[in-house]
Design a protein around this nucleic acid. Structure first.
Lengths: 217, 217
DNA sequence: GTCTATATATAGATAGAC
DNA sequence: GTCTATCTATATATAGAC
């Protein structure tokens, strides 16, 4: 359902796919609108009506597609997963220094994408509250990101005396934390915080403290 | 009203302070309960009834004291300010390395204080959403903290070729960001993240990259 | 100072018409 | 597939009794 294969060969009727195509489009519109609302207003504060308004339907229309608000959030996150993965598979997954550079470029881009940044900030923090439906998703996501960054730091720290694994893992957590934490400061006071510069400085400080050269500009 | 001087000398009647004493106690109870609720469930998701339940009154009782939910949040934050300041004035304000050590000790203590950590995390992130009543408070708070940490880093980096002011400011932002960002990761997966160790490592990495010795244990 | 009663708003969700 | 109508729950807030 979420892999976009609904329109392929083995579907019996002719008008089912035609209807499904329209339905999929609506679904996509709703997911997009829901992502916007949840990320700017938070999951609990954002309402189905807010979302429905952006699509131009009523909130009952949303429930027709997703059944419940909670389920909608789950689908929004799943959708973000799959589209992100597709992006990565298209351009092959960068490794080591390339991955670190990719992360830095993402931070640079984020300065022009207040929406995305706010989304992530609000939702991830809200997920730590009791019984939040996105808790598992964020826990997993942080786990994966730590693993990827740990590996990237290991490769990037190159040959020579290897940096202890624990240090690499701490470095990964620290980098993720700096990025996330800076977003709050930046959203509240954009002129006071140079996000890309600070992330780069922190990464280079870690490399330097491990006896490695800083990343090239 | 919020500096606790209401019971002092120049108050005419005798029974006004007596009533006020009881009222002040209730006020205190409500502020404490409100702090708990807002920080575990967020401002928008936490309800006046949640708070009232903890105090053992109805939600109308809360409104009797604070007029509105928004005003209650403002008073909760103001209260946190003044009690924090009193704490600092009692033990004189640490400077330079002492301030950095104080920050590290706070992180160590936080590992045993899930409530406080969650409170801060949820509220600060929620504050970046549109029209949030705590937005100004957090913007100011981050500004003050950046200034204090910048100064502490300047003093702590000691004599010798001074570290450029911009670097110090970036370091201050980075440290605050690491602490805040780690809290989200830690709340979602406490075993996966060594908060104090990572903050210490990051601070030392910064000092090292500036040609300074790391902080003593 | 705290309560009951109530006004008002808004939320998520269900049933059924078209 | 989308709507209207409605249910139910919950929220903030006000008025007034005690």
């Amino acid at each position: 359902m979420s892999d976009g294969r609904a329109e392929s060969a083995d579907i019996p009727k002719q008008d089912v796919p035609r209807l499904s195509a329209r339905a999929l489009k609506r679904r996509g519109q709703i997911l997009k609108a829901a992502h916007e609302v949840f990320t700017t207003k938070g999951f609990r504060n954002g309402s189905l009506s807010d979302i429905a308004d952006r699509v131009g339907i009523t909130h009952q229309g949303i429930l027709h597609y997703f059944g419940s608000k909670e389920q909608l959030l789950v689908e929004v996150l799943r959708d973000r997963d799959t589209s992100g993965r597709q992006e990565f598979e298209r351009a092959e997954r960068p490794e080591g220094v390339d991955f670190l550079q990719h992360v830095l470029r993402t931070v640079e881009k984020n300065v022009a994408r207040t929406g995305i940044v706010q989304a992530y900030t609000v939702l991830s923090a809200e997920s730590v509250t009791e019984e939040h439906p996105a808790q598992g998703w964020f826990r997993d996501r942080f786990g994966d990101l730590r693993a990827d960054l740990t590996e990237a730091l290991r490769v990037a720290s190159g040959p020579g005396t290897p940096v202890p694994r624990e240090r690499l893992e701490q470095g990964a957590s620290a980098l993720i934390a700096v990025m996330d934490g800076l977003q709050v400061q930046w959203l509240l006071d954009p002129d006071a915080v140079d996000m890309p510069g600070i992330v780069r400085m922190t990464l280079n400080a870690l490399l330097t403290s491990w006896g490695r050269p800083p990343l090239a500009e």
